[in-house]
Amino acid sequence: MSINYKELKDAELVSKIKQGDGEAMEEIVKRYSDKVYNLAFHLTRDKAGAEEIMQDVFLTVLSKINTLRDDAYFSTWLYRVTANAAYGFLRALSKGKKGMDQGYPNDIEYESTYAYDWSTLPEDILLSDESKTMLINAIDELPESMRTVVIMKDIEGFKNEEIADAMGLSVPAVKSRLHRGRLVLRQRLSNYFKKYAQKDTIPTGTTR
């Protein structure tokens, strides 16, 4: 009697992989390759690099799966392996310098942002090639701690709890990094879009 691998839970597949079952491994690859690849791509912004990372990740699955104690935590573990492989890749390229949290304005400074509401701009301005490029660069330039969380949550759609588990952070820490990251991006967008503001629409009122 043949097993229908498609119907097995992750944990069941994992325990089979631990016993060297190649078909179980194939099913895991089918389930997770897109997610691993996209996370790697968004963290490194490098297509060839993302493929390399994906290969490393699945090789790591084969070689290290026995160290996974609780098979139910497979996906969490997989994303952590992916993020770590992506950091390793960036460090090797010495792109990893931007991991420093220095040079970022603290919360007080966000407040001084003037209140131009650029959310009413037409879509062709909001989603112009120039503004997209600007935003992609801004995401790239976030400190590593914020960037990973923003990418996992706002781009890949992970839940806060999943990010916390994968990154070894508490949920409040995830939220605070996410919030700060979003505020930095918002600030960058505000600076970029302000050229579309008419002077008289910028209220000069002080913060209460």
Partner: peptide
């Protein structure tokens, strides 16, 4: 408004 839109745009550019 701009905070919400930042999230939307982040999702869209990628």
């Amino acid at each position: 408004h701009t905070y919400s839109l930042t999230i939307t745009l982040t999702k869209k550019v990628e």
